[in-house]
């Protein structure tokens, strides 16, 4: 006989339990790495985009903060990692990754005060403004950033002093996958904590959240800073695995694509960014081989279709088909039992 309290505990922990589908997802990622050694570069790109989108999901899907300038943190992380490698400030890539994340986090903390105030439109404009500002600054201080040419001649030291980055991107892929997995597990832990639950409450109704004693602003600052760290790490991974850092890391297109990725994958369940990144890259590859000049047209069309079919629950349109199948299956079973 379970007591009500044990029952409460059981159900409270239920959503945090690992689902077999999640295990399958990660095994599939590892499997891809083993099966397609010739595709390391594109797969690394997908993982990195997935991590970047995970960062946006933390603020958009959980706390309800919209952003059109998430590339600001990606860019800061990217340049940070590039400069550290170029000038030999921090040579070990993993350590440099952590430093780049922290620098982006500091920027996130500093700008969070501007962002959390106001309504969605204000937030869109402020985030967009910050990213544009940074892009302009990077261009202005071209003696540091290399201006429009970007940082030239970055060479990465071996990872942990052991693994040399190779031209096929093998080390880069496994490195990115490992970082993504660790950060994913951390994010998963966080969203199932009381802190994570309070974020969902704030997204639902900030007025109500304050009325149960939740310090709304402090929580938003915390999650915005965390998301900045994640985006910074994604940016640093970009520089480390491509040995490039140019002005387009800050570009508006990068922020806008990110929202597309998250809409494609769905918000508020953490896998949206990863699923979205896979879909986005596949679409991009397919359409740009079919019609190199007009692939954006097809992406636009897909987007419109998604919005049309998933109107009621845009954030989870990915589940539209599986749910439909499940429902049909169940009702068929119920019908057969009669």
């Amino acid at each position: 006989m379970t007591t009500p309290s044990e029952n409460v505990g059981y159900h409270a922990r239920r959503s945090a339990r690992w689902h077999w589908g999640e295990a399958a997802f990660w095994i599939a990622l590892v499997g891809c790495g083993l099966l397609f050694p010739s595709r390391y570069l594109i797969m690394t790109e997908i993982l990195r985009l997935g991590l970047f989108a995970l960062s946006l999901d933390l603020i958009l899907g959980y706390a309800g903060i919209v952003s059109l300038g998430h590339a600001a943190f990606f860019g800061v992380g990217a340049y940070c990692a590039g400069l550290m490698a170029l000038h030999g400030i921090v040579n070990e890539p993993l350590l440099a990754l952590v430093v780049a994340g922290l620098v982006a986090g500091v920027l996130g903390l500093a700008t969070s005060m501007l962002v959390i105030r106001g309504v969605d439109l204000t937030r869109l404009m402020v985030t967009l403004g910050i990213a544009l500002l940074l892009e302009a600054l990077a261009e202005r201080f071209s003696n540091i950033t290399g201006g429009t040419d970007g940082l030239q001649g970055i060479t990465m030291q071996p990872l942990l002093g052991l693994f040399e980055f190779d031209i096929f991107g093998k080390v880069g892929f496994w490195y990115t996958l490992a970082v993504l997995f660790v950060l994913f597990v951390l994010a998963r832990r966080i969203v199932h904590s009381p802190f994570g639950l309070s974020l969902r409450a704030i997204r639902n109704n900030p007025l109500r959240a304050a009325a149960v004693g939740i310090p709304v602003n402090a929580r938003l600052v915390a999650v915005y800073t965390l998301a900045a760290v994640y985006a910074g790490i994604a940016g640093a991974l970009f520089t480390q695995t491509t040995q490039l850092a140019s002005l387009d890391v800050f570009s508006f297109e990068r922020s806008a694509d990110l929202i597309l990725v998250l809409v494609l994958g769905g918000t508020g369940y953490l896998y949206g960014g990863l699923v979205g990144a896979v879909i986005f890259k596949i679409l991009q590859e397919t359409f740009s081989t079919l019609t190199p000049q007009y692939w954006l047209f097809w992406i636009g069309l897909v987007l419109v279709v998604i919005v049309m079919i998933g109107r009621e629950r845009l954030e989870r349109w990915v589940f539209f088909l599986p749910n439909l199948v499940m429902r049909t299956f169940r009702s068929a079973k119920a019908g057969g039992a009669k």
Binding site: A12, R14, A16, S193, P194, A201
Partner: peptide
Amino acid sequence: LAVSERSGHGHDWWRRMG
């Protein structure tokens, strides 16, 4: 949520609910 905040565990980001 209300109980967590009242008891000072609302900012706890590591322990899971329940």
